[in-house]
């Protein structure tokens, strides 16, 4: 049965603009093998740099990951109405990547930043997933194929959002 979608009042002031967009009039599609032993975020950023990109959307296909850490969302117990991530959960053994999506954009420090969510199968065969801690996770044993849509002239930039009180990716001219 369908439940009426929930409404969440975040701690900050509501922005009038509810859907932000920027158009890249030229985009580049390519695939890249992410190499074993390397950090997931490093490999994704390296591929963007190789193609001169500041922002891209990525689909990850197959392979294995080690030092796997992920986060789930929660209501912040210390700040009224704030949503944040729980502390990371860690897997002691390698996991099989089932599917994952990532966006790459420019972080607040001016460097390329990866935001990745996905689903894996644990070494016990249990499906688990959430927000990937991409700078801690390593590609394991065999390459992971990444399909990129690289954006030119526009893309994601990390900016503080006064409504949700987090720094998040928003469309920007790059």
């Amino acid at each position: 049965m369908i439940q009426w979608p929930e409404f969440h009042q975040h701690p900050g002031e509501v922005d009038k603009e509810r859907v932000l967009t920027k158009i890249s009039h030229r985009n580049i599609a390519f695939s890249q093998l992410l190499l074993p032993g390397e950090f997931l975020s490093d490999e994704l950023i390296k591929a963007c740099r190789l193609h001169g990109l500041k922002s891209a959307g990525v689909n990850l296909v197959g392979g294995f990951l080690e030092d796997f850490e992920f986060c789930l969302g929660q209501k912040d117990p210390t700040v009224h109405n704030k949503i944040n991530y729980r502390p990371p959960q860690k897997e002691s053994a390698a996991v099989m990547l089932i599917c994952a999506n990532a966006n790459i954009g420019i972080g607040e420090d001016g460097e390329l930043l990866v935001h990745c969510h996905g689903l894996v199968s644990s070494h016990k065969g249990v499906p688990i997933g959430g927000h990937f801690v991409a700078d801690k996770i390593r590609i394991y044993k065999q390459p992971v194929t990444a399909f990129f849509t690289g954006l030119v002239g526009a893309g994601f930039r990390q900016m503080y959002d006064g409504e949700v009180t987090h720094s998040i990716f928003k469309p920007a001219t790059l």
């Binding site: 922005d15 603009e17 509810r18 859907v19 932000l20 967009t21 920027k22 158009i23 890249s24 009039h25 030229r26 985009n27 580049i28 599609a29 390519f30 695939s31 890249q32 591929a47 190789l50 193609h51 922002s55 959307g57 849509t149 954006l151 526009a154 893309g155 994601f156 409504e163 998040i168 990716f169 928003k170 469309p171």
Partner: peptide, 17 residues
Amino acid sequence: AVEVNKLNSRAICVRIA
């Protein structure tokens, strides 16, 4: 890497609030 340029297509990056 296998690269395909798609000069005629648009890509729109979107943030839904």
